[in-house]
Amino acid sequence: MPTRRLFLGACASLALTPALALVPGRPVRIGLTPAFLHDQHGTLEAWRQYMEAKLLQRVQFLQRDSYRETMDLLRLEKIDFAWICDYPYVHLREQVRLLAVPVFQGRPYYRAYLIVPAQLPHANSLLELRGKIFAYSDPYSNTGYLVPRYQLRMAGEDPGRFFSRTFFTYSHRKLIEAVADGLAQGGSVDSFVWDSLNKVKSDITRRTWVVNQSPEYGFPPFVAHRSVSKESFAAMQGMLLAMSTDPQGKSLLQRLNLDGFIAGDPRLYALVTKMMGEFGEE
């Protein structure tokens, strides 16, 4: 039933008739995770309105504090689309389809930054943080959890015992703050979040030093639940991909610190799959 309405909306969008009134009924529900800057409510609202105008459909954003909650919403089909981290994507790939991949600094990739408090002496590598306090962002974050643990495992260490104490901040942005305040002596953070924050709030990032950069990973993608109709899928994907060609869309992308979206390929995330395999996950 809901998909049928969505289908109508998608048709309207494809027909490129923006003069049509919004289709009443259930809105398009998009889940957002703290994969990007958390306090961009103005930008998000502008983006939502942009989407409504393009899709001719009511759009609802659902923000949750942890990846887990967004993943649960997807599983329970409480949302149709979601912008999630690559790790949850791989985790949920049986239930979701890759919709679009954001392009950051010209490429659909990002990295993990190892950051430490900007003070001397400081650790220059992950292995120098032995016995220290380490901050993870989210148990379902690739760069904020999986990457450092994988690196330790590769170095022959037990990630469970390597640090004296670890904790989750459930947001990359908060993780940067935790390291900046010295609460943790090290942390692994999404390079996209750190770079974006560095643009708008350099007073926080300035108190951290990036001492190591990981290899590239596929950028946290937009996914669609498999239950979403082809038409809706296409409408949404078309809207996202077209953003960089549209002045309003371009300005929004700028505010999100992104260059645009591409359709992407699941193979972008092969590395994550490999790392998960290392920890016995599928």
Partner: peptide, 8 residues
């Protein structure tokens, strides 16, 4: 919940 960051 051992949520250190929240306590902080």
């Amino acid at each position: 919940q051992d949520h250190v960051w929240h306590a902080y």
